[in-house]
Amino acid sequence: MVDLLHGGALEAAAWKIKNLPDYEARLERAARRLDALGRGPAALKIYETALMASGRPVEEVREKVRAFEETFEDDEEEMTIPRASGIMNVEDDSWFFGDERIRVMTGRLLGQFQHRVTQYNYVDENEVLRRWADGYDTRLFIRRRIHETEPIAGVVPGFELPLIQYLRVAAGGDTLVPTPGMARVLMSLGAVGEGEASDDYAVLGAAEGLALRLELPAPIAGEILNDLARGDNLEFPEPPAEVAEEPEGEAADEATGEVIGTGGTDSEEAKPSPDDRAARRAARNNAERGEEPTRVQDPHAKDAPGTKEEEGEKPEAAAPQAGPEDAPGSE
């Protein structure tokens, strides 16, 4: 299905952000912040994401992850998912801010992704994590608002949409994490309504659509929105009236978030002239008369052009006649 609801509003919102006087500086800051997030072994990305369930600031969470990495660093053995699981099984809850719930969540997530690594015949763990983050199936579960049935992270109790999105971004996925600050900025930009600002799915969809129109990776666009949310002044320049008009065909598929009709040269293709339209009508009429089928079809199909069934009774096939050599008793 195609969602055309916020098309023009997102075009206007993208124009407002691009025309901010400090847009380039915000873009650079967003890129620097994301650079630190995507580094490190897959096991530590999963661990960091689970720790975010504590509600503590991201700086405090990353400090805990760095301490864990330094404490158990081994030049001869990498911090793989199985090794991290083994360490966490024997260590106390201090590595989880004293929260048994986070400890259990971390163990289950590590187990789920270790199972995925074996399914991929032990491909690099970070690559397995990235494939999950950007996979079609994962995006489909999120877009259809059924993340709790997603086969990997979605089946872990307490691992809600914001945490799933945090892990997808950390793994290198082209998505973002919906936040209240981001929702407030999108509402100020006119990209979401007041009733949608409390809906993480609506905020996620609008922010990803805005990233497409900004021609930026979704994580970068998300950081820019969060950067704007940290400021006190949410005033934006007003775009010309024509900017708010959504070009034909630029609609987002709500199942995958992909834009329909904007890839390649679709958006640059000129509209057909009256002569072209007349020629196409003539071709269709010829096809209806059976002169020139417009597509390959089953010749036995009832709706195939130029293959109407003949009226009258169909002759029955005659029984095969037996020859002398087939007669009973012949040798």
Rank of each mutant, 00 (worst) to 15 (best):
279 A>E: 15
108 R>I: 06
124 D>I: 08
329 G>Y: 10
187 M>Y: 00
302 K>G: 06
65 V>P: 03
186 L>R: 00
85 S>A: 15
161 L>K: 13
204 L>P: 01
203 V>W: 01
13 A>C: 12
99 D>T: 09
190 G>V: 01
279 A>Q: 14
264 G>L: 10
161 L>I: 05
36 A>D: 13
88 M>T: 04
157 P>G: 13
68 F>S: 06
93 D>H: 02
263 G>D: 14
317 A>Q: 13
91 E>A: 05
211 A>R: 09
112 Q>N: 10
123 V>G: 13
198 S>I: 03
187 M>N: 03
62 R>W: 04
235 E>C: 08
62 R>Y: 09
66 R>P: 02
141 F>W: 14
102 I>Q: 11
173 G>H: 10
141 F>M: 15
293 P>E: 09
204 L>K: 06
276 D>T: 15
306 G>L: 09
23 Y>W: 07
179 T>D: 03
301 A>G: 04
297 Q>I: 07
330 S>F: 05
6 H>V: 00
259 V>Q: 04
55 G>M: 10
106 T>R: 04
20 L>F: 02
49 T>C: 12
17 I>N: 12
2 V>D: 05
181 G>T: 07
293 P>A: 15
202 A>G: 03
135 G>D: 01
178 P>R: 03
220 I>G: 06
328 P>H: 05
31 A>D: 12
20 L>A: 09
151 P>Q: 07
77 E>S: 09
246 E>Y: 00
49 T>S: 14
48 E>G: 14
227 D>Q: 13
136 Y>W: 09
216 L>V: 02
55 G>P: 13
221 A>S: 11
10 L>G: 03
172 G>W: 11
226 N>S: 13
6 H>I: 00
